[in-house]
């Protein structure tokens, strides 16, 4: 009924689909950075898609099992091993009592989702089992896993899975030269037209600081701002505004130099202008980018953003009918 942590990996946390509804109180949504991958892992092992699983970033943990469980690893290409023998990602496999689940080096992506039949049974906090590390909230004692932790598992699977693997076309497509689609706003008027053109032309590289709070980018030209007299309540830096809410996916550029895409553990408001918001359909992919990966931003309108969201929703429906 428990798994024991032999090695935690770099930073492994319990995550589910998140904790919406408290953003106005400054509590971020948290939950899986790649929600599609989390859903897929859960469906493969017969869990409900919103059940809690493990999110491992860049390196996998080493876990010892005490009873027979079905396990699936999705998201990043982080090859799982059972007692040293390789297993496939995006496929369910059985781990017997006494066996050890470990991982090979990361091949692609950034975050792997490890779902175990029954789910990780940590207490619900504000309706979610997701870990919010900065706030010490939720998950396993509000923190990442550590050696010798014992994680309680749920009783049994919700149903018998219909399929034990996810077909290629329902896995994340390799985007090659990735492009993040951006809906411009809410403060795009603060930068010059030339600066906006430059932002969408330049190649940006993921900075090593990128984490669950935000993905920082480097490499493009600094932004030029439209001159103004700072309004009351805004700081003197041209990238400052009177405090405003930050949507999930919004892009702030402190001092106009390094854009930051706010992700699942980001704070909900503050005093930096935002030049746009990465569309929801591309946010899972942001969570799979490695440091130094090169990307472009491209502007889209609301219709294109909603169409992309529908494409994602249809893929999820196909995944559900394949697995359930």
């Amino acid at each position: 009924m428990v798994i024991e942590v032999i090695k935690p990996g770099l930073r492994t946390t319990v995550q589910d689909l998140g904790r919406p509804g408290y953003h106005h109180l400054g509590i971020p949504m948290s939950g899986a950075m790649d929600r599609y991958a989390l859903r897929a892992a859960n469906l493969l092992v017969g869990n409900n898609e919103e059940d809690a699983a493990l999110e491992a970033v860049f390196a996998g943990p080493e876990l010892s099992f005490t009873d027979r469980r079905l396990v699936a690893v999705t998201g990043a290409e982080l090859p799982p091993k059972v007692d040293g023998e390789l297993r496939q990602t995006w496929e369910a496999f059985i781990v017997e009592p006494g066996q050890i689940l470990s991982f090979d080096f990361l091949k692609k992506g950034a975050r792997a989702y490890i779902a175990i039949s029954g789910g990780i049974d940590v207490p619900l906090v504000l309706g979610s089992r997701a870990t919010y590390l900065l706030g010490g909230l939720g998950g396993f004692q509000g923190r990442g896993l550590a050696t010798e932790d014992r994680l309680q598992l749920g009783q049994s699977m919700a149903r018998t899975p219909k399929s034990t693997s996810v077909p290629e076309d329902l896995r994340r497509a390799d985007p090659g030269e990735p492009v993040l689609r951006v809906l411009p706003g809410l403060y795009a008027h603060r930068i010059t037209e030339e600066a906006a053109r430059g932002f969408y032309e330049d190649v940006w590289k993921v900075a090593p600081e990128a984490d669950r709070v935000g993905y920082r980018f480097r490499g493009g030209r600094p932004l030029q701002f439209v001159p103004r007299k700072p309004p009351f309540g805004a700081g003197s830096d041209p990238s400052n505004i009177v405090d405003a809410p930050y949507p999930y996916g919004s892009i702030q550029v402190p001092a106009g130099t390094e854009p930051i895409v706010l992700h699942r553990d980001a704070i909900s408001g503050g005093g930096y202008f935002t030049l746009g918001t990465v569309i929801s359909a591309d946010m899972d992919f942001v969570g799979q980018m490695q440091p130094n990966q090169k990307i472009h931003f491209t502007p889209v309108d609301m219709n294109a953003a909603l169409a992309a969201r529908r494409v994602e929703a249809e893929r999820l429906e196909r995944l559900r009918s394949h697995c359930v």
């Binding site: 080096f105 090593p208 490695q290 440091p291």
Partner: peptide, 9 residues
């Protein structure tokens, strides 16, 4: 010997 994680060395 291989790097176990990505980042800056």
């Amino acid at each position: 010997v291989l790097a176990p994680i990505p980042g800056t060395f």
